[in-house]
Design a protein around this nucleic acid. Structure first.
Lengths: 172, 172
DNA sequence: TTGGCTGCAAAAATTTTGCAGTACC
DNA sequence: GGTACTGCAAAATTTTTGCAGCCAA
């Protein structure tokens, strides 16, 4: 499923003075199999076939792979960053703030934005894994489509007392 | 400084069955004074004048204010979400992955993107506090401006050994 | 060989919760 | 007066580190 535009991981690692180890390859494969995943998910996937791989190794591996550019990460949900395989088709994420669903969208839709920002301030946007927050079609109430419209969650405030934590589905 | 388009916080809270307390007002004021801040920064700012306000209160307050739409949050850096006052001029953030600097940009530059996404999938983007990651002008090396170009941090991999954690300036 | 990498376990940092008292409506 | 909110302290999580042995190159 994920054999997009392969990159020679080993070579890239070596070029940076790092090494290509079994664990690193395992993490890379797990990620490309999963498409995108959090540290936990990734650790679980790797440990399915290599139980001794420790969580700290996954953390350190991801950090290294990220530094070398073999993976990227975005912040889809609160605390935990979500990692992506560079080997994967570049895409951006649409994160629904209401139901938590994560959908993908072609990066092309944001090409103009990148250009505009570049022109306006010289900043170069990394679109490969941009995350857009908002409301998915099914959660969007019949409100005008003004993207600047204040908080989308205004009228359905919590009943009272404990504030309901928004559901947290993470499947794409 | 930050008396943009005011919102009646008390009213909005009450409308949701919540209450307007001194602590909540303090958090709101601190946030509007700071523009945007993490939980820690906010707690510090609040505690400067109200030392007894506990960190857990800040967490719970932010959660409540967010649910009611009086504040929003984005994920500028790794773990900690950054909160924003709705009272503030809407803007998006340009986060440099190299030096960590955070700059602001007018939301207008992304209006078309919102429309395109809306059209493509029915998803309504909340642009008010979008975060774009990439390279600021001073950190962008002389590379072609292809926003799809693989990882921007490819050739300057860590010397070896411990991977240098990117600096973490958070001033806008 | 050499020095980067890994596993294990402990330490640190970050968030969340339980409760009894307090304050807002 | 009823009930949401707060502070404090403890509990639960999530990440980071120290080290001795292991393994790519």
């Amino acid at each position: 499923m994920a054999a997009g535009r392969s990159v020679d991981a080993a070579a890239r690692l070596r070029a940076a003075g790092l090494r290509s180890t079994g664990q690193r390859r395992a993490v890379l494969e797990a990620l490309s199999r999963l498409g995108h995943a959090t540290v936990d998910e990734l650790a679980a996937e790797v440990q399915a076939s290599m139980p001794e791989v420790s969580l700290s190794t996954v953390y350190r591996t991801l950090e290294a792979l990220d530094a070398v550019g073999l993976v990227t990460h975005t912040h889809l949900h609160h605390g935990a960053p979500t990692y992506h395989s560079v080997d994967d088709e570049p895409h951006l994420h649409l994160v629904c703030q209401a139901c938590g669903a994560v959908a993908s969208e072609s990066v092309e839709v944001a090409l103009d934005l990148a250009t505009a920002v570049r022109r306006a301030s010289g900043f170069r946007v990394d679109l490969t894994h941009l995350a857009l927050h908002g409301r998915c079609a099914s959660c969007a109430p019949a409100i005008p489509d003004d993207p600047l419209a204040p908080p989308l969650h205004t009228s359905e405030a919590p009943a009272a007392g404990s504030l309901p934590a928004p559901p947290t589905l993470t499947e794409a």
